[in-house]
């Protein structure tokens, strides 16, 4: 039996908002450890992996590992009907009926909404994602997640030439990270320097560079990842020319959301 409760719907609402526009289906793995979610976009260029440890829930009971594929668009729709302070209950029964029940209960007026989701197939996930050693990455950038979101918005507004495939080039050189994109009639570069942590200890931009690195990505994907900012104050971007880039948001003490993206290669 699986029975989970969260006294505030916000966390789950934010998770769904952070993944549902780019990923249509996800695999949810429930175990004694917690919930592990994985999804891949249809072109297999981006992957999201989420961990919410059992401690993230107010009540967590999972006496047998359970893996289910769910449609994220439908879930996002249901969660948009939930208020931030609704109590969520997630239940799946022993009889393997291939459905999971999400219940939203308003603590104020006692109204209860019940959604049953059928399991769907998730082709290609879950994958075994190893933690590559730090030395495999040429550069790491940590910055406030709100700043990263602002950068993505600026680049999108400039790079929006009606072409869905606007490319952003991220390059790290010494103590600077540059975001570069091309618009219809010009280019745009946003330069972020490492900030002194003394002035604003809570919002540092930190750059660790082993080698200069410059990689091209789809801006559309990066823009979508930046929605992870509702889950964490900081984002860490790990860059390597040999591995997928990782955009990681730590969720308090209880887990993380990691987006993996492959750079574009010129043919």
């Amino acid at each position: 039996i699986l029975e989970l409760r969260l006294v505030q719907a916000t966390l789950f609402k934010n998770v769904l908002e952070a993944i549902s526009d780019l990923f249509s289906k996800a695999n949810f793995d429930f175990s004694g450890t917690g919930l592990e979610l994985q999804a891949m976009d249809t072109s297999h260029v981006a992957l999201v992996a989420l961990l919410l440890r059992a401690e993230a829930f107010n009540h967590y009971l999972c006496d047998r590992d359970l893996s289910m594929g769910l449609n994220l668009a439908d879930m996002a729709k249901a969660f948009r009907c939930a208020n931030n302070d609704d109590i969520i209950t997630i239940k799946a029964e022993e009889d393997w009926s291939d459905t999971v029940t999400f219940t939203f209960e308003s603590p104020e007026d006692g109204e209860i909404s019940i959604f049953d989701f059928d399991f769907v197939g998730t082709n290609g996930v879950p994958l075994e994602i190893p933690e590559f050693p730090e030395s495999e990455y040429q550069a790491k950038v940590r910055m406030p997640s709100a700043k990263f979101m602002r950068i993505c918005k600026k680049l999108s507004s400039f790079g929006d030439s009606g072409d869905r495939d606007t490319v952003v080039i991220i390059s790290v050189d010494k103590e600077c990270v540059n975001f570069f994109t091309r618009g219809k009639t010009g280019t745009s570069t946003i330069v972020c320097r490492q900030t002194q942590t003394v002035d604003k200890p809570k919002e540092p931009t930190l750059i660790e560079m082993k080698e200069q690195v410059s990689l091209a990505f789809d801006l559309r994907y990066m823009n979508s990842f930046s929605k992870g900012s509702t889950l964490s104050d900081q984002v860490t971007i790990s860059l390597s020319s040999n591995l997928p880039a990782v955009f990681e948001y730590k969720i308090a003490e209880t887990g993380y959301i990691r987006y993996y993206m492959l750079p574009r290669i010129e043919e």
């Binding site: 891949m40 072109s43 297999h44 260029v45 981006a46 992957l47 290609g124 879950p126 994958l127 075994e128 994602i129 190893p130 091209a216 591995l243 997928p244 993996y260 492959l262 750079p263 574009r264 290669i265 010129e266 043919e267």
Partner: peptide, 14 residues
């Protein structure tokens, strides 16, 4: 240019 590689090239199936 196009991305030629897919995620599966880096990560294995469970």
């Amino acid at each position: 240019g196009k991305t030629q590689l897919r995620m599966e090239a880096f990560y294995s199936f469970n």
